[in-house]
């Protein structure tokens, strides 16, 4: 029988690893977003088994060098919903891991025939080093201040799903929408991956936060910087609040928490300057009433828990694409 004529968009995916949004083209990002809805539907099944047999017999290893709840559980659940086996490994966050140790550990994991390595590491570039010299599929689950690609993908997916529901247009894209990121941009890999991802999808990004938490020359990444929250929220379709990393407060990067709240907290008061239907997002964990008012986080405009649900579907899509389309191990 001749090959099936293609009636659907043909898959263009050859990537073995997901290391950062910086590597991805707009088409690749959209392929991930287009692959995810069928996995969201798997989780919403009313009866029967909430999993599909796409990675049966494969082994996914969660290797987290830094504390994490959401991301680790999300990846583990995504792997399980694809019928993969999972192992979890945690290393003390305080230990400084040298390159050699990293390689050795991975060589040991690979000796157990792992197919997917999901790595979170406090050193920027750690997943890239592993991907260059090992055969398993490497997924970056956050490396230092560098990137957190699956977070940016699930955020883009959440925004896109909302636009499509709101406009009734099943093809609606992020082109031209305005997204304002508020908070600690400097230490945030979530912000970095989101700026890259949103830009590639055609959205306009505004950054807002204390000058001490704003990276130098960040405009060159294609974002507008604004130090006045009210100004930054004007016309925003999405208000994305970032976590203030209290553990860094001792370095005195802003004068006081009270002052931060007064100038930069996303709450009823500041949101009067944003459109009424602006979406509220946050990558978690939230410092309630610090960067984001609790009633806003729990309010009708917040899609924070949708981000969490979508995270599983998007991570399923990523693992499926890397393993089933990105070449065998």
């Amino acid at each position: 029988m001749s090959a099936a004529p293609h009636t659907e968009r043909e898959i263009q995916w050859t990537r073995r690893h997901l290391l950062g949004i910086a590597d991805l083209s707009r088409e690749e990002i959209e392929t991930v977003l287009d692959t995810a809805p069928q996995f969201a539907a798997v989780a919403k099944r009313k009866s029967g088994i909430k999993k599909v047999p796409l990675l049966t017999g494969r082994l996914a290893v969660n290797w987290f060098h830094e504390p994490s709840t959401r991301t680790r559980l999300s990846f583990e659940l995504a792997a399980k919903r694809l019928s993969a086996d999972t192992l979890a490994m945690t290393t003390s966050a305080s230990s400084v891991v040298k390159g050699e140790t990293l390689h050795d550990t991975l060589a040991n994991i690979e000796a157990m025939q792992a197919d997917i390595i999901i790595l979170r590491h406090d050193c920027a570039g750690a997943p890239h080093i592993l991907a260059a010299s090992h055969t398993s599929h490497v997924i970056n689950a956050g490396d230092g201040r560098h990137e957190h690609p699956t977070q940016a993908l699930l955020d883009a997916f959440t925004i896109r799903e909302h636009l499509r529901r709101k406009t009734g247009n099943p093809e609606a894209s992020l082109d031209g929408i305005k997204v304002t990121l508020v908070g600690d941009i400097e230490h945030s890999r979530v912000a970095r991956s989101n700026i890259l991802c949103l830009n590639k999808l055609g959205a306009q990004v505004t950054l807002c936060g204390p000058a001490t938490l704003m990276p130098a020359r960040v405009e060159e990444m294609g974002a507008r910087v604004c130090y006045d929250l009210r100004e930054a929220l004007r016309g925003a379709d999405v208000v994305y609040s970032l976590r203030i990393q209290l553990e860094r407060q001792q370095h005195g990067l802003f004068p006081s928490i009270r002052e931060y709240i007064r100038l930069f907290r996303v709450d009823h008061d500041s949101l009067r300057h944003a459109p009424e239907d602006a979406l509220i997002m946050h990558p978690g964990p939230i410092n309630r009433d610090l960067e984001l008012a609790a009633d806003i986080a729990d309010g009708p405009r917040s899609v924070i828990l949708e981000q969490v649900s979508n995270g599983v579907a998007v991570r399923m899509a990523v693992m499926h694409l890397l393993v089933n389309y990105g070449g065998a191990v």
Binding site: H6, E8, R9, E10, I11, W13, T31, D34, T35, P37, Q38, A41, A317, H320, L321, N324, Y325
Partner: peptide, 8 residues
């Protein structure tokens, strides 16, 4: 196709 137009 990884990204089918319709799903179950």
């Amino acid at each position: 196709p990884a990204s089918p137009k319709g799903y179950t």
